[in-house]
Simulated assay, not measured.
Amino acid sequence: MKFLAASALLSSFILSANCRVVDLSLRQDSYPADFKPNFDSVFSVVIQKPLSTVFPILGTNQGLGAHILLESIASDFEEGAADSVNVDGNLEDAFVRTAAAAPAGQGFPRQHFSYIETIKIIPGLSFLDVVVHLDGTYTWDEARNITLYETSSDKSVVVRKVRRFEEIDGGAATNVSEIINGQCPFLEQPITQSQARTAHQAQMNLYHTLFE
């Protein structure tokens, strides 16, 4: 019984740590055939800084590591290669993590990265920790104030996040909104969906700390 309980708890933590978020209304024809989103989250925050201050930190690779590491379980962020990628249509409708790099001077800028998420099942018992390795890309369209974050983990989870920036209050503040789309194993979906929105909101509510 203890083993079964531990297994169930371990499964729950894997779900909450690796599955992050899927707006089923997004276009499906631009996704790979094997990407079937089955969980989602939508959230927005207002940052009391102008867009010219917010976008370089949250919209480009300049602050990529800092905003990923706002997640309490994230560590070991590493930047990979920086390149660019061509997209047919709008960036928010694309899936570019594995696309070939564009020739120099073409396309949207793209930053490759990796990091680790560590889920502590029981504090002090590190041998029970669940360690998840994620590889991803961050791509941005500065002309339209839109970014695309994509990751794939070694736990069979794919995440796709579209972030939009909008000037408000006469340019004195910036609204940052996100739609996160994800795919995880079917049996894990109910727990993933319930955990995804909480984790998403917690991280976004810390964005303002990057500007203090």
Rank of each mutant, 00 (worst) to 15 (best):
K120L: 02
A173Q: 13
L70V: 03
E178G: 02
S75T: 08
A94P: 00
T192A: 14
P123E: 01
F3W: 11
N145V: 02
L10F: 10
S156W: 10
I73D: 11
P185R: 15
S84K: 15
T98L: 11
V85A: 13
Y207V: 04
M1Q: 14
I47D: 00
D169S: 08
I146M: 08
A74Q: 11
E71L: 12
I57K: 13
I73H: 10
K36A: 10
F127V: 06
E167V: 07
L128K: 04
T198P: 00
G63R: 11
A5L: 14
I179V: 14
P50I: 06
V45L: 04
S72P: 07
K155S: 03
I14R: 10
L70N: 04
G182A: 15
Q28S: 14
I180E: 04
S16V: 09
A33P: 01
V176I: 08
A81K: 13
Q193V: 02
V157H: 02
R110C: 01
S177L: 07
P37Q: 08
G182V: 04
F55T: 01
Q201K: 15
G80L: 09
V130F: 03
E167F: 01
N181Q: 13
A172N: 03
L134G: 00
L58A: 02
V54T: 06
S152K: 15
L70W: 04
V162S: 02
R164H: 12
L26R: 15
L24C: 07
H208C: 00
A172T: 03
L24F: 09
D29I: 05
T174K: 05
M204Y: 01
E166D: 08
H133N: 13
D129V: 05
G89F: 15
P50F: 06
L206F: 03
S153E: 03
E178V: 06
G124C: 03
A104Y: 08
V176L: 01
Q28L: 11
